[in-house]
Amino acid sequence: MTTAAPAVEADGLTKTYPGGVRALDGMGITVAAGTVFGLLGPNGAGKSTTVKILTTLARPDAGTALVAGHDALRHPDRVRRAIGVVAQKSGADPVATGRENLLLQGRLYGQRGAALGRRADELLERFDLAEAGGRLVRTYSGGMQRRLDVALGLMHRPQVLFLDEPTTGLDPEARTAMWEEISRLAGEEGLTILLTTHYLEEADRLAERIAIVDRGRVVAEGTPDELKGELRGDAVHVELRDTPDEVDARLLATALGEFAAVREVTVEGRRLSARADDGPAAVPHVLAVLEQQGAAVASVTVARPSLDDVYLRYAGRRFADADTGTGGTGATAVQPAASAGGAR
């Protein structure tokens, strides 16, 4: 980590939308210059609102935001010159060509003449759009459009690049290609990337540090390994045959809790989760306790800690349950699926 001033420093951000929806509730993050920082959370957690405030689009009700050393609230114009923004929605003009979009973007930042054209061509080349550069954007595939969006954000060589859900809506192939591109960007000298995502795998793979966001504030922060390491041990997930009522659920949790090898027992619907230093060794004991309590078991899974478990621990909910928006569940299933099948 560098000792230079942080690229982003936000503190105590609150924001309530007209209509009473509280989007941010004391949100604060610090992003070191030259790093990739991930904001991870379900839809509606406040990630996009945070990005909108940091990119000068929206204003918070309270709190402070420094971006690239400038106050985003008092000097939004200075912040705008220093940042590149790739929002969730494309934003490219569909009835202009890819190259025209880039040229206009550059002009808005004061780029002119031959240097402007060179920069546009360089980015088209780099994002594999050289051939499509002269075509109208409305003829582009989703992946091409997304690559153009990133190119637009980079046109003026920003110090801080905001990527708001860069791979949402992309097919797996285009997503992998985008991940490679972001990894390459991260290696660039001095570029700081703030990435929001509701894909656990994406945050795990791209971000050096992650802040887990829930209900408008950060509930946990650290490197992916730190976050997973804090959980110490494996996750044991038991699917019960029947949903226990509230009293039974509490009894099950208490009975298992008395058993030294497992901790952090939670019961949600039919799903019972616990943590164990040695997952496979704990399974027979867990099953014995459940049988004693008369709870029939449908399946048992043991998994190495994943960010999903981290999320459960800090937000008190499963990621997929919290992610009420569209398209969330399919993607979050990636993580548990990798560990399905039982013992490691």
Binding site: T55, T56, L57, D77, R80, R81, I83, V85, A87, Q88, K89, S90, G91, A92, D93, P94, Q105, L108, Y109, G110, L152
Partner: peptide, 11 residues
């Protein structure tokens, strides 16, 4: 489409 927001975050 997000075009207006894109412009609003430029100078």
């Amino acid at each position: 489409r997000g075009t207006l927001n894109r412009f609003l975050t430029t100078p």
